[in-house]
Nucleic acid binder design. Structure first.
Lengths: 231, 231
DNA sequence: CGGGGCGTTGAAAAGCGTCAACCCTTGTGG
DNA sequence: CCACAAGGGTTGACGCTTTTCAACGCCCCG
């Protein structure tokens, strides 16, 4: 169909929320945005906001990790995304949040009033464009994740997850996962047992090493990406 | 956790791309946007653009139906979304398309240069906000779909699909599906056989009626939404 | 009238989920 | 400092939903 093929390692698009650090194009406006924020800290498993709440605020993760999740009536859960330091949560809300935000581990956040968005889009025309980019990137990530959920095997899902996490960590070959196997399972559409078996299988095949459950060492990055294929 | 519960029938958020008709807030600007567009027509299964192509244009469906899909190397396919008359395709691209757009049925589209977006966001400040809303809605839809792909059973997926399609059709109780079972399967993360069995099961239970494969009559809307739960 | 895609149905196989037991780590309290 | 409890993780056995493979029917169009 097309002569071009999608990049194996998509640029810093990366799943898992959106990054926006002071070194980027909208740095100045964000610096002043900071003055509107309040620092809050949350304990592990605490809920910051719930699906259906009025969306008065949006948040940025400073330390720790967060998750955004949706529930079905009988308790089935899906975790849309994990948020690590630098990521924004809730920028994509209309007047009500469409998901629940909880702390994966003890975390500190900065809370901004949503009105700050409108202030900034009107003052800084570039900020609106920036927001659009962020949402586009979230959407691309969501599409990649739909492909994963709809069409990948358990091991492929875990491999994809590790590749994505690696892209978000300083040392992609040696990372600490802040979330439980159960969180990972609900993110990948699997059960904890299946996730655990996939980890074991990758370890047995020599693709990764495990130091405790949380610490992953990538031993064969090529094999991991082969399995992940398109994250 | 929260006192509020998510609405059973989310507002006209609707899955399946984004709507933008002349009756809404940005009507005037869109009318002038129309002058920048070229009408094109595509035959069934024709490719309008491919994953990885430079994104010079975005499109609006006038008649017929389109699909956006992603592929894995071995041919596994996922259809992100279907696009019906009024929907825009490709607004969420960065410089390259992240998915392939194909015609589900013979279709006519309007093609706009992507530069039109920047023109309009600079001329009409309200247009940028409008775009943000559209992308937010797409993102919400994607999150609902991830829940479906990760956690719903085959019958629940088909029921959800029918509810969503119903929300996009004039007569929600009596609709024609322009796409094949295979398209539906690749959208729901199933096989054609499983989709077919789910249709048969819904028919046997008296929830829907079928007049040919493409024509669905909803006989028990409450049961259908019960099965779909949160679309 | 015939062919070809699409859809449906059936039987067998596989992958993942479920249930259950056990292990390991961590943290707490005696 | 040790003992114990609790939560998370791993492993095993089994069952079920969905996939796979295959055959057949239907409908549309040439």
């Amino acid at each position: 169909m097309s002569s071009t093929v999608v990049a194996k390692n998509p640029p810093p698009t990366s799943r898992f929320g959106i990054r926006m650090d002071s070194a980027n194009s909208a740095g100045t406006s964000l610096a002043s945005l900071d003055r509107l924020g309040t620092v809050i800290s949350v304990k592990r498993d605490a809920t910051v906001f719930s699906e259906g709440d009025r969306s008065h605020y949006f948040f940025r993760v400073v330390t720790g990790a967060m998750r955004s999740c949706c529930l079905l009536a009988d308790g089935r859960r899906h975790i849309n995304d994990f948020f690590l330091p630098g990521d924004f949560i809730g920028l994509d809300a209309d007047d009500h949040y469409r998901f629940t935000a909880e702390a994966v581990a003890d975390a500190t956040l900065v809370r901004y009033p949503r009105s700050a968005i409108e202030q900034f889009t009107s003052i800084e025309p570039g900020f609106g464009k920036h927001l659009l980019d962020l949402l586009s990137r979230q959407l691309i990530a969501a599409q990649q994740h739909m492909l994963l959920l709809g069409r990948k095997t358990a091991t492929e899902r875990v491999a994809s997850f590790l590749v994505t996490m690696g892209g978000r960590t300083r040392d992609a070959g040696n990372m600490s996962l802040p979330m439980t196997r159960s969180d990972i399972a609900d993110h990948l559409g699997l059960t904890t047992e299946t996730v655990s078996r996939a980890f074991t299988q990758l370890k047995t095949q020599g693709v990764i090493g495990l130091e405790g459950a949380a610490h992953v060492i990538v031993q064969d990055g090529a094999a991991l990406e082969e399995l992940a294929e398109a994250c």
